[in-house]
């Protein structure tokens, strides 16, 4: 197999890293709750009997034993581990403990569109905006007026997004009353593909989206600026200038294009962190996305749900990095794995 810039050994090695990441993640998730000890079934039965007024406790021991057998908790740990791995790999997560008839897949399926819409869109906006700002910050020809405004975008770079969210909520929702304080749409509105509903959704999405964009933008701006600065020192920039290329061409084709790729890589690499970081934003704004689902799962001690979401997050990140690593040599001729890089 010899695609441009790729060789079989490299592809295999990358696939190996991917499998290792997923396995590490699955194993961590398997081990953690078991290290903490306790019997989830007993805890659950205890909770149910408390909820039922604490009446029926005589038979709860038998109930626990029956369910233990049913869930295979009497099997040796190693067998449990293998079954867990098999189910994870086939995305067969089973049922949620608290929302019993609903399967984990159903719950995640209902929450995912909200997260993709909000976090996905906001992240893309933050990425594009931040990258653009970073590029112009590093360009000598940027008009000085614009240039003096650009650093303002860095204000919230170092601050976690939920803190910005608190501030925005307080100012725009509770004090000024311009935007709703939580949820993805008003309670009275029936979901459907009509304009009033969509407008309602947009209104609810603006504050959380602003939170994510405001906090993430500066990160992308700074790393873009760093890349642009590095590239300005390259010989091909000097050559381009000596050839008398138009400054705009030097800027877009020589510098921005070369700086953008590492940005994309960094985006893929940070995907998991970005998504999981927005758990807090969804929690703060009561947004019905995956982050909120995860938080509810923790509150209700629905470990099946929690473990499944975290596992999916890890797989998604690892997959994004894998795809990118395999695609990059195809789109960036500077990267080649045809020869072993000398160590």
């Amino acid at each position: 197999m010899r695609l441009r810039g790729l060789n079989l050994r490299y592809v295999l090695r990358r696939l190996g890293t991917f499998v290792l990441t997923v396995w590490l993640a699955a194993t961590l998730i398997f081990i953690i709750p078991r290290l903490a000890g306790g019997n989830p079934i007993a805890a659950m039965v205890g909770k149910i009997s408390v909820a039922a007024g604490g009446a029926e406790t005589a038979h709860s021991g038998a109930l626990v034993a029956a369910w233990d057998a049913r869930f295979g908790l009497n099997d040796p740990v190693f067998v449990q581990y293998l079954i867990f791995l098999k189910n994870s790999v086939t995305f067969n997560f089973g049922f949620s403990i608290t929302d019993y008839p609903a399967s984990v897949n159903q719950l995640i399926g209902a929450a995912l569109p909200w997260t993709l819409g909000l976090v996905g869109l906001a992240t893309v906006i933050a990425f594009v905006l931040g990258t653009g700002i970073g590029a112009f910050m590093a360009w000598r020809r940027t008009p000085s007026l614009i240039r003096s405004v650009l650093p303002l975008s860095l204000t919230f770079t170092a601050v976690p997004s939920f803190m910005l969210g608190l501030l925005l909520l307080w100012v725009f929702s509770y004090t000024l009353g311009w935007f709703p304080a939580g949820n993805a749409y008003s309670l009275g509105v029936t979901p459907g593909l009509n304009l009033p509903f969509l407008w309602n959704v947009v209104q609810h999405g603006i504050l959380p989206a602003l939170t994510i964009v405001g906090a993430a933008m500066g990160f992308w701006a700074l790393s873009m600026r760093g890349m642009m600065v590095t590239i300005e020192g390259e010989d091909y920039m000097v050559l381009g200038e000596a050839k008398g290329l138009r400054p705009s061409r030097l800027f877009w084709r020589y510098r921005v294009r070369n700086s953008a790729l590492p940005q994309v890589t960094s985006l893929a690499l940070n995907l998991g962190a970005i998504i999981s970081g927005q758990i807090l934003v969804e929690y703060l704004f009561d947004y019905p996305g995956v982050g909120q689902l995860l938080y509810q799962g923790i509150l209700n001690e629905d470990y099946v749900l929690v473990e499944s979401i975290v596992f999916l997050l890890i797989v998604a990140t690892a997959l994004a990095v894998l795809v990118l690593d395999l695609i990059l040599p195809l789109i960036d001729p500077r990267i080649s794995y045809l020869r072993e890089v000398p160590r």
Binding site: L20, T21, L28, A36, I279, I298, V306, I309, V310, A318
Partner: peptide, 23 residues
């Protein structure tokens, strides 16, 4: 390989599970 794999694991999500399990 260990560092490259580990760095992509979403820390906060796993920490949430850890902290919740430890109670």
């Amino acid at each position: 390989v260990l560092a490259d794999s580990w760095v992509t694991i979403p820390a906060l999500a796993v920490l949430v599970v850890l902290a919740a399990a430890l109670q």
